[in-house]
Design a protein around this nucleic acid. Structure first.
Length: 170
DNA sequence: GCCAACGTTGGC
DNA sequence: GCCAACGTTGGC
């Protein structure tokens, strides 16, 4: 039978991402301490980032855990996506810092995914380290004014960062 | 602490 | 629909 199967999500090869967090609010050690070393990545309140979480980030994708607004800044380790985009319930909680009264539970505005720790790098790969690597010159997080908190990463960048960290790509 | 780069809001 | 004002992000 030649009937086309309708897919809600295009099947494609594994993708790579970078998620930002301020380690003062949530660090890779916090993730390591979670049950199953897994958590939901909540609080994204930007439409472009939301679209990535809702439409593109898929189970099995790999993610850099990036420390922003910290000293030092950089990539702390890697995570695997274990649940694809679903409504961010913290938007419905008036007591939550990321509460958004405009997000309707019946038609949620904001989405999140679940991530599981793959590895903490032996040492933070700092922003300075990243900048000194010519292969990473075009990496989005290094571009001026790159405020997006969910960013796509190329396979080559994924590999180059592991080389800088001196670890295997698990 | 400063400020450039954005994103959002609201008056018109 | 335009755009000035304002708020936030996040590197330096």
């Amino acid at each position: 039978m030649a009937a086309k199967k309708k897919a809600t999500k295009k099947k494609s090869s594994r993708r790579y991402w970078l998620f930002k967090s301020e380690p003062n609010s949530y660090s890779i050690d916090d993730l390591a301490g979670e049950r199953m070393q897994t958590t939901f990545w909540d609080g994204v309140r930007n439409y472009q980032a939301r679209n990535f979480l809702r439409d593109d980030v898929a189970v099995g994708d790999r993610v850099f855990f990036y420390y922003s607004n910290s000293k030092p800044m950089g990539i702390a380790g890697t995570m695997e996506v274990v649940r694809e985009g679903y409504p961010d319930h913290t938007a419905f909680d008036p007591d939550d810092h990321h509460y958004d009264p405009k997000s309707d539970p019946d038609e949620p505005t904001w989405f999140m995914v679940d991530v599981k720790l793959i590895q903490s790098f032996p040492a933070l790969v700092t922003r300075g380290d990243l900048k000194s690597e010519t292969a990473l010159a075009k990496m989005m997080v290094l571009q001026r004014g790159s405020r997006l908190s969910i960013q796509p990463v190329t396979a080559a960048e994924w590999k180059a960062v592991h080389k800088l960290a001196g670890v295997k790509d698990l």
